[in-house]
Write a protein that binds this DNA or RNA. Structure first.
Lengths: 248, 248
DNA sequence: AACAATCGGTTCATCTAGTGAACCAACGGA
DNA sequence: TCCGTTGGTTCACTAGATGAACCGATTGTT
C-alpha cells in the first residue's frame, strides 16, 4: 500500500515547480532520491509533456504548459468560482476596485479569480499567485474563521514579512484575528504590497467551514480609512451572499 | 525504460481532470487499466492532495486546488506572463476591453491570463480555458505565424464549429491566415462565442518562433468594424513590445 | 420479488519493472 | 593538474506494481 514510484514522481514534479528552472543533481538532493531514479522520472514526465527542458541553460527542467492546462480546468475551486462570479462582478461595479477570490492551499492562499478596475493605479496579483495568509486580507479573514488548532499550527511557522508593514508576531496576528471576527471583515494596509490596501471577508460553507475569501484591493491613496467601513460592509455582504449559494 | 506506474498515474490524473467529477469504474474504462490499479493510484494521489473526493455524490473524484497551485506557479507560461502583464495592462486601459493572453498546448490555446473590463457586458473566458485555434483570434494569429507543417498538420484534424460563424473549411482558414499575415493582426467576429468579437496578435520569440498570443475581446456591438484597425494596430504594437521583451 | 448490471472496493499469486550504489565523461574553477 | 561539480548510465536485487477474480451494496428492470 504505497505506490512509491508515483509518490516520488509527484514529489519530483512539485520540486520542479518550486525550483524551476532546475537541474538533475539539485532535484535529486531536494527530493532525497538517487539521481538515477529522478532521471527516469524526469524522462517519463517529459514524455508525458508535463515538464520540458530549456534548450540552452544546460537542459534545466521546468513545468510545461500542458501540466497547467490539465490541472486548471475544473478544480474544486471552480465550483466556488462559478457561484462567486456574479456577486463578485456586482461588488466590482459597486466599488470600482480590484476584486480577488482566493482559496487556501497548505499555508498559502491561491488567487483563483480576479476582476479588474478601470483605474490606472491598480492592485495586481497574477492569477495563481500563492500568498501568505498572515500577510493578506484574504488570508487573515480565512484564519479568523478557521479552527483554533489550525491557527495555532499556522502561527507555529515563522511568519515572513512581505513588506515592512507585515505582521510577523503571533500575538499581533491573534489580536488582529479577534478584531476581524468582531468587525466582520479584515483590513490589510500595505501588509502584502507597499502602498496597497485590501479589505477581505471569508466564504464560509455551513458544512465545511471556511473555504476561501474575497477581497477588495487598491492603492492606499484611494482606499483610505474613511472608506474602510463602507467597503468592509459591502465585502462582508457579498461574502455572505456567496456563502449561502455555496454547494454543500 | 518505461516507468509504467507513473505513466498510468498521470493518465489517471488527466482523465480525472477531463471527466470530473468521476467515479472509479468510469476512470478504469477511460484509461483502460484495471480497477484495482486505478484505485491504488487514486488513493495515492489523494494522499498527495492532488485529487479529492466529493463528500456526497458517491465519492466521485475531482482535481484538488493543490494541483492547480503547484502547476500554476512558474510554468513556461509564467515567464511570458511576467513580461506581458505590464504592456497588457496598458492595452486594457487603452481599449477598455477584456484582454486575453494565451499559449498553445497541443491543438488548443490555453488562456493563462486575463485582464477584464469594468463593463457590465463583458467577454469572458475562464482561466485555463482550452479553445480551438481555428475558432479564436489568439489561435488564428498563432497559426498564421507557425510553420507550414504545423498548420498543415493542424488542418488535417476535423475543424469543429464553436458557433455557426466558425470557419470550418481548411481553405477558408488558410486564406484567413494569409490575410492575418499581411494585416498584422487577426479578427474573429463571433467565431468562438456568438456576439463576441476579438482581435489578436501573436507573441513571437526571435529564437523559438510564435510562443503565444494576445487579444482584445468584447461584445460585437462595441467592437464594430470601424474600430478594427484602431484596436488591431494597438494589439499588434503591444504584441511586438512583449515579443521584444521575451526571454531567449 | 427476483434479476441483472451497475457501483466502489479488496484480495493475492505472479513476476514485471523500479531501485540505488557505483560508475562514466565532461565541464569549470582554483 | 586537481577537485568538485555537472548530466547521464549500468545492472543485480527484490520491492512492489499488476490484474483476474472476487465481495457486498445499490440501482433499475422485468
Amino acid at each position: 500500500m504505497s505506490t512509491r514510484s508515483v509518490t516520488t514522481a509527484i514529489h519530483v514534479l512539485e520540486a520542479v515547480a518550486e525550483l524551476q528552472p532546475v537541474g538533475l543533481s539539485e532535484l535529486s538532493r531536494a527530493v532525497e532520491v538517487p539521481k538515477a531514479t529522478v532521471q527516469r522520472v524526469l524522462v517519463t514526465l517529459e514524455e508525458l509533456q508535463w515538464i520540458e527542458r530549456a534548450e540552452r541553460d544546460g537542459g534545466k527542467w521546468s513545468i510545461a504548459v500542458h501540466a497547467y492546462a490539465v490541472t486548471s480546468r475544473g478544480s474544486s475551486g471552480s465550483r466556488i468560482r462559478d457561484v462567486a462570479i456574479g456577486p463578485l462582478s456586482a461588488l466590482q461595479l459597486e466599488t470600482g476596485e480590484t476584486i480577488h477570490l482566493a482559496v487556501p492551499d497548505e499555508l498559502r492562499m491561491v488567487v483563483i479569480e480576479r476582476l479588474d478596475t478601470p483605474h490606472v493605479l491598480r492592485a495586481f496579483l497574477a492569477l495563481g499567485s500563492r500568498i501568505p495568509m498572515h500577510a493578506s486580507a484574504t488570508g487573515l479573514t480565512f484564519l479568523a474563521h478557521s479552527s483554533e488548532e489550525f491557527v495555532r499550527a499556522y502561527l507555529q511557522h515563522p511568519l515572513a514579512a512581505s513588506t515592512p508593514d507585515t505582521m510577523v508576531h503571533p500575538q499581533e496576528v491573534q489580536a488582529e484575528l479577534k478584531a476581524i471576527r468582531s468587525r466582520g471583515y479584515s483590513i490589510n494596509p500595505g501588509g502584502l504590497s507597499s502602498g496597497i490596501t485590501a479589505i477581505g471577508a471569508a466564504l464560509i460553507s455551513r458544512e465545511l467551514g471556511p473555504v476561501g475569501s474575497i477581497s477588495v484591493s487598491g492603492p492606499s491613496s484611494r482606499i483610505t480609512p474613511d472608506k474602510f467601513q463602507e467597503y468592509g460592509t459591502a465585502v462582508a455582504a457579498t461574502a455572505r451572499q456567496i456563502s449561502m449559494a455555496l454547494p454543500g
